[in-house]
Amino acid sequence: MTGTPAPTARIDRTDRIDIAYSPCPNDTFVFDALAHGRVPGAPALDVTFADIDVTNGMAERGEGSVLKVSYAVLPWILDEYALLPCGGALGRGCGPLVLTRDAGGSGADLAGRTVAVPGERSTAYLLFRLWAATEVPGGVGEVVVLPFHEIMPAVRDGRVDAGLVIHEARFTYQEYGLHRLADMGEHWEATTGLPIPLGAIVAKRSLGEERLRRIAESVRASVRMAWDDPEVSRPYVREHAQEMDPSVADRHIGLYVNEFTANLGPDGYAAVRGLLTRAAAEGLVPALAPGALDFP
């Protein structure tokens, strides 16, 4: 699904940027002002809505100027894309969950079992693999990739033994009769003390340093405008929230849009660097080149 912002005199219509992000409430909240031409001096956007597994693949193929991607995919794309210091999703108490049909249990119960995950390049799966390395003796069995909205039904219906869920699923999994086996965010925070890095905004380095800085400034302004008047963004959020309960959408935004969305800052960069350094040490991702995370 593709949308184009309404015409406005406040932006240069000859300066256009294609961007892809998810229809989830945190992304539509963050980009509402920018997508609709309310950020003075910002480029016009040609918006494509796509789930994170799709945008990760786009980034790996070099498709798209600006993308919302998983932090886990950065080691494969940072030669071509720069990490923007704003617009993404990090936080505390917001990590992916492992769900099962039965209450109780531990990581050991997943040994040799089938687990559904929302993409093998997702940050959720990377956090899961780091957790499973110490908590699942012998390792899990088959890993099945499913769109995130199909994971809870698959666990409920017994098609998989467990599911790794993201987004608003942490608020709604009880409605499927499911139980939380483990919280990947709790494990990450307990072992590192750092916030949980989830989704990043990246832009092609070929756009040039001046334009990259302008895009970052525009994204940051869009975040602040959303905070200043949240009601303005509600129609855009509701339009793309896939019949999500409005209260769930509000909780989703409250959890995933925070100070790190406006500015990664030292703690945010430490979290991203910590995740990718630890994953590289485990042989899960390529090692980052020096300065790969630096913004022009």
Rank of each mutant, 00 (worst) to 15 (best):
R278L: 13
L90V: 02
Q174M: 07
T192N: 10
M225L: 15
A216M: 10
P230M: 13
P5V: 04
S65P: 11
S247C: 05
A20S: 15
A249N: 11
M184L: 15
I17Y: 03
D15V: 01
L212Y: 02
E186G: 11
W188E: 13
G199K: 02
S233L: 05
D229H: 12
T8W: 04
T48E: 15
E120L: 11
A9H: 12
S122L: 03
G139I: 02
T55K: 05
G163W: 10
A262Q: 15
G274D: 05
A103Y: 00
P153Q: 12
I52Q: 09
V272F: 02
E63Y: 01
G208M: 07
R156M: 11
P85C: 12
Y256D: 15
G185S: 11
L34R: 03
E60A: 10
P286A: 06
L276W: 00
L212M: 10
F128L: 12
R180F: 00
A154V: 05
S247I: 01
I19L: 14
G254I: 06
A203D: 09
A72I: 04
P7A: 09
W131G: 07
R101P: 01
D32Y: 01
R156P: 08
G112E: 14
A270F: 01
R61E: 14
N56G: 03
H187S: 11
I253E: 15
L34D: 13
G141F: 03
E80Y: 01
A289S: 13
V237H: 09
V257L: 14
E150R: 13
V223T: 07
F148K: 07
H149P: 08
R16Q: 14
K68S: 11
D32L: 00
T8L: 06
T277R: 07
V69P: 01
E186N: 06
E259N: 08
R205E: 13
E282T: 01
R211T: 07
A241V: 03
L83F: 05
S106T: 12
L276N: 08
P147N: 12
V144N: 09
Y173F: 15
C86L: 05
L212E: 12
G268N: 11
G177A: 10
R214M: 08
D109H: 02
A182L: 03
E189Q: 12
L181E: 13
E259V: 01
A271L: 02
T134D: 15
L67Y: 01
V285Q: 06
A111P: 00
H252E: 15
D79V: 02
A241E: 12
V237R: 07
F295M: 10
V66Q: 10
R170C: 04
A33R: 06
A203V: 02
P235W: 08
G208P: 10
R180A: 13
E210Q: 12
T8F: 03
D12W: 00
V117K: 06
G3F: 12
P147L: 11
A132T: 04
N263K: 07
P197I: 03
G57L: 05
S106K: 06
W227V: 08
R214C: 05
R61L: 11
F29G: 03
E135W: 01
G158A: 13
W188Q: 08
V143R: 06
P43Y: 00
Y269A: 05
G112S: 11
W188K: 11
R113S: 08
A216Q: 06
E168S: 14
R211A: 06
P246T: 08
